[in-house]
Design a protein around this nucleic acid. Structure first.
Length: 255
DNA sequence: ATGGTTGCTTAGCAA
């Protein structure tokens, strides 16, 4: 069973690429971030024709998340429902058979020390609170998304230059670690130890050709799933060429 | 300190 996650930077601009990748790889589930489209305009039909049932939670211009599943997903939640500002359409949860799957788009934070940065840290805390209220680490939980945090120095192209910068700040890493402390494992690191493996490369300054990137996208799994995780990959091919998202698609495969 | 690129929307914002 293959699960995938992809920040597509506009689902309409990337539709052809996403459909081509789906037909090639046929994952059970694809979680999408940055759909950048209101629900009325989400391109549901092409995904249905490709054999997927889409759930989507979007807004105008920014953010937006979706879950595509080969079996009909049951929508569990849009946003945290905790009475606070969700900072846009960033969180969608569905049950897919026994799986409890979330598509997650963590706020960027914009600038270390800014109000947006504080909201990013708080958002990660609210996500943990949501898990505590709505599920259990004993369940089969998958959080798939763009975390906007590079968890360790080996996840960034120049850790010295980027030390303390956005995506690498100790407070962001601590917030992500606290979330994982609920009972989640970074599936990629179960299978790969090397530095220099990234999921995002800046469009500017030839980031991808120079492999100047960061690993910001992750599939986090609860213990019962982590035990059954037999592979995890970053699909660099999908970042190549004109018309690619600045993020590439990642996968985790479970026995 | 700033720039570089992309997408949405149409000049400027967000990433």
């Amino acid at each position: 069973m293959k699960i995938a996650s992809w920040n597509v930077n506009s689902v309409r601009a990337r539709l052809g690429r996403v459909l081509a990748w789906l037909s090639e790889e046929r994952p059970e589930v694809l979680c999408i971030q940055e759909t950048k489209v209101v629900d009325d305009a989400f391109p549901a039909e092409p995904f249905e024709e490709a054999g997927y049932v889409p759930l989507f939670f979007g807004q105008k211009t920014y953010n937006g998340v979706a879950i595509l599943s080969r079996t009909t997903p049951l929508e569990v939640s849009r946003g945290f429902g905790d009475g606070e500002d969700d900072l846009g359409a960033r969180f969608l949860v569905a049950e897919v058979g026994p799986l409890w799957v979330a598509s997650v788009y963590v706020p960027n934070g914009r600038e270390v020390g800014s109000a947006h940065f504080a909201q990013k840290l708080a958002w990660l805390g609210r996500l943990r609170a949501f898990l505590e209220r709505n599920t259990s680490p004993d369940q089969e939980v998958l959080l798939c998304g763009d975390w906007n945090v590079a968890p360790e120095d080996r996840d960034v192209w120049d850790p010295e230059a980027l030390q303390g910068q956005l995506h690498c700040h100790p407070d962001e890493r601590a917030a992500l670690q606290h979330l994982c402390g609920w009972g989640l494992v970074d599936t990629f690191r179960l299978h790969h130890e090397d530095a220099g493996l990234y999921s995002w490369w800046d469009y500017r300054r030839l980031g991808f050709p120079r492999n100047r990137g960061m690993r910001l996208d992750m599939i986090l799994a609860s213990a019962s799933l982590a035990r059954r995780c037999v592979a995890a990959e970053i699909c660099r091919e999908a970042r190549k060429g004109k018309g690619a998202s600045d993020h590439t698609v990642i996968t985790a495969t479970f026995r």
